[in-house]
Amino acid sequence: MKKVITFGEVMLRLATPDHLRFVQSATLNATFGGGEANVAVSLANYGIPTEFVTLLPKNDIADWCIAELRKYNVGTNYIIRDRGEGRMGIYFLETGAVARASKVIYDRASSTFAHIHPGIITWREIFEEAKWFHWTGITPSLSQGAADVCLEAIKVANELGITVSCDLNYRKNLWKWGKIASEVMPELVSRCDIILGNEEDAEKVFGICPNGVDVKKAKDKINAEAFKSVCEKLQTKFSKVKKIIITLRASINANYNVWGGCLFEKGKLYQSKQYDITHIVDRVGGGDSFMGGLIYGLISYPTDNQKALDFAVAASALKHTIYGDFNIVTLKEVEQLVKGDGLGRISR
């Protein structure tokens, strides 16, 4: 089976335990995470061979990170180790509760990955074994070099006929290197086959809003049909794109969300069921778990958009019950939830 290749920065994650605030906590729990690495872990869990491509420093923390990725069967053959000291990016997480939102603080400026530049990754060699390439909007937000390498990879993938997917993943706090997302993303996205986003991504990056709905006022259920207009506008803007997927989240509070999604192709909108997630353990990585589930579904059920969408939404609903960025659920667990078994009975 040919591989799925993902490309981006993986970071050290330092999180306060037990919903403590930063000023309260004497300890921080250390794990790893990053959009594209999270997708690779999900796919590897489902039995899809993957390779995660990134640039890491030569130090013990990066060694630890690579060991963690290998533990989850993610391919690390094309991780480049920088010759200098360098450092990994870090993000700090304070997990909110009820009316108090979670908070993320990034410390990734001038990381080893931010200094990446075209010509150092052998994309043609990497893509020889590939059928799919995935990137997110986080990568080009980090530096001019990261944006250039992302475009370099996409162009080679296009030449070789490899499916290219993108999670728009707009992060306003990351676009600091001189250009804004709306200046960089259109060229990258125009070369993609599949794009995933939410209503904020489409609005902030491309100025596209759903007709006649204010998502911020959605208290419990979101009408997926209202987002058909977003998909239609994105399709008009990016003619190469075959499928457009929107994740739908209504936040009742920090611990209770309603979660679903829709998929648009050739004028038809597919809608998932919506899950009431009433006791969220960790929502960080929820969109990445959706993307991992979606890629698995589109590979495994290439003629059944509904089945692929249902798998993605169920996979990401389960992620909200898993601590850390990685969605370490099994294929069987996702399939059981798709079938309606969400009671959480003990498995004996």
Rank of each mutant, 00 (worst) to 15 (best):
32 F>A: 04
167 D>C: 04
37 A>T: 00
65 C>A: 12
243 K>Q: 10
174 L>G: 07
344 G>Q: 13
106 Y>R: 00
228 K>A: 15
78 Y>S: 12
231 C>H: 04
5 I>S: 05
124 R>H: 05
147 A>T: 03
100 R>P: 01
219 K>A: 10
329 V>S: 06
219 K>H: 05
134 H>A: 02
331 L>Y: 06
280 I>F: 11
20 L>C: 08
312 A>W: 06
104 V>P: 04
178 G>Y: 06
205 V>A: 08
231 C>R: 07
191 R>S: 14
340 G>C: 12
188 L>V: 13
327 N>R: 04
213 V>A: 03
261 G>K: 03
9 E>D: 05
129 E>Y: 10
83 R>I: 07
206 F>Q: 01
338 V>I: 15
51 E>M: 03
90 I>M: 07
72 Y>K: 07
173 N>F: 14
115 H>S: 08
170 Y>A: 03
80 I>G: 03
289 S>E: 06
287 G>Q: 00
193 D>S: 13
163 T>H: 11
227 F>N: 12
231 C>N: 13
152 E>N: 01
306 Q>R: 07
27 T>S: 09
297 G>W: 09
319 K>I: 02
335 E>A: 13
308 A>N: 04
129 E>W: 05
119 G>Y: 04
84 G>L: 14
74 V>A: 00
143 S>V: 10
331 L>H: 08
295 I>A: 08
232 E>H: 06
226 A>D: 13
153 A>D: 10
2 K>R: 14
4 V>Q: 10
88 M>I: 11
118 P>F: 15
78 Y>A: 11
69 L>C: 01
198 N>Y: 10
68 E>F: 10
266 K>V: 11
129 E>C: 11
8 G>T: 02
23 V>W: 12
155 K>M: 04
257 N>T: 09
141 S>M: 03
302 P>T: 03
94 E>N: 08
80 I>A: 06
310 D>C: 10
323 Y>F: 11
177 W>H: 09
44 A>R: 00
109 A>M: 12
340 G>V: 15
288 D>W: 14
198 N>T: 15
334 V>I: 11
120 I>Q: 13
317 A>V: 01
279 H>Q: 15
286 G>M: 01
229 S>C: 12
303 T>M: 09
149 V>C: 06
230 V>Y: 07
69 L>E: 00
254 A>R: 15
137 G>S: 13
187 E>Y: 09
308 A>H: 04
148 D>E: 15
282 D>H: 01
112 T>M: 01
172 K>Y: 05
227 F>E: 14
294 L>H: 11
171 R>H: 03
114 A>F: 01
273 K>Y: 07
273 K>S: 11
288 D>I: 14
219 K>N: 12
269 L>H: 08
107 D>L: 00
171 R>A: 07
306 Q>A: 05
129 E>V: 11
83 R>G: 11
119 G>W: 10
68 E>P: 07
280 I>W: 14
304 D>V: 07
125 E>H: 15
50 T>F: 06
165 S>Y: 00
22 F>M: 03
108 R>M: 03
